[in-house]
């Protein structure tokens, strides 16, 4: 009788596991991994208050790529990092950095619908994500199917973004915010590199502003990175980013505060901010920033 009961329970258990697997699109084997906190080499603890205060989307690959596409800037494969550099990423720190860099590139590829190139990048990202035990959050199989069959590009963008977002959330919630911040730094430097090169080639005012407004972003990013400055790798990265930040001291950003306007159009609420943000940056400063970003980015890729 007892044996029958156990058999019955095990059958239910198997069905439950299959359901869970189907719903989440995750490999069931990933659900039983040893907690990362036990594997990680001395994660740096950070208070809940600081985590709460962290900006959620400090660097997003989608917005910059959307602006480029909106400006009808043609796709340029040479802008993104070659996946061969991935073999230089051997430590957890380097893997997280690579994850950020290639995550940004994936956003760029997705926005331009370059599915033939996507597979190489998602394979690289999965390998790096596995390397820091967050591969279970990267929905490789769905992304591969979407890219291989050249299916719905919107879904490709959505799942890529969600995968990166889940990795970020998991790391933050599991006392591994240090790696989360390294990923953010990787996304940011790659995004700035892409924007810089396009600005240099096109000298488009909008792209110039995007490079200039990164002064706001680096001012938010640096204090967050500084929480982990005791880590020698992070200290090195901070030192490099400080060089960029220093150049941004010559960029002037001014504001005029305006009253936002709210309109209801066909039952939808539309709010328009009326603040004016003006960015002043000389050609010389822009060139210095571009050169510095190129120098630091290639240094990071070479490991």
């Amino acid at each position: 009788m007892t044996r029958r009961f156990i058999f019955f329970v095990v059958v239910i258990l198997l069905f439950s596991s299959c359901n869970s697997c189907r719903n989440s699109n995750k490999d069931v084997s990933d659900a039983f991994e040893i907690p990362d906190s036990l594997k990680e080499d001395n994660p740096v603890p950070i208070s809940a208050a600081v985590i709460d205060d962290m900006v959620q989307n400090i660097a997003s690959p989608i917005e910059t790529a959307a602006v480029l596409k909106g400006l009808k800037v043609p796709f340029n494969k040479d802008l993104i990092a070659n996946t061969d550099f991935a073999e230089n990423f051997n430590t957890n720190f380097a893997k997280a950095l690579g994850l950020g860099i290639y995550g940004c590139d994936l956003g760029y590829l997705n926005m331009y619908g370059k599915t033939s190139l996507v597979i190489d990048y998602i394979s690289t990202i999965r390998s790096l994500a596995d390397g820091i035990q967050v591969g279970q959050f990267f929905d490789f199989s769905t992304l591969k199917r979407l890219a291989t069959n050249n299916e719905n590009i919107d879904s490709l963008v959505l799942i890529s973004q969600q995968s990166m977002s889940r990795i970020d959330t998991y790391l933050r919630e599991n006392n591994r915010s240090n790696l989360s911040m390294v990923i953010v730094a990787g996304v940011w430097i790659e995004g700035l590199y892409i924007s810089s090169v396009v600005t240099q080639e096109s000298n488009h005012k909008r792209m110039r502003d995007i490079v200039g407004e990164q002064k706001e972003i680096i001012n938010l990013l640096m204090p967050l990175l500084n929480h982990y400055k005791k880590d020698p790798n992070m200290a090195k990265l901070i030192k490099s980013f400080e060089e960029i930040k220093k150049l941004y001291s010559d960029v002037k950003i001014s504001y005029e505060i305006g009253e936002a306007t709210t309109l209801e159009v066909n039952g939808e609420l539309q709010i328009k901010q009326n603040d004016v943000q003006t960015i002043e940056m000389s050609d010389e400063t822009l060139q210095k920033i571009i050169d510095k970003v190129k120098e630091i980015r290639i240094k990071l890729l070479k490991g």
Binding site: T262, E268, L269, Q270, I271, Q277
Partner: peptide, 22 residues
């Protein structure tokens, strides 16, 4: 911006926000 306008008591499932300041 808010999804709930107190003056009208109306809830919106989404709102659009045009940003002019990074």
């Amino acid at each position: 911006a808010t999804t709930y306008v107190i003056a009208t008591g109306k809830d919106y499932p989404y709102i659009d926000f045009t940003c002019t300041k990074t």
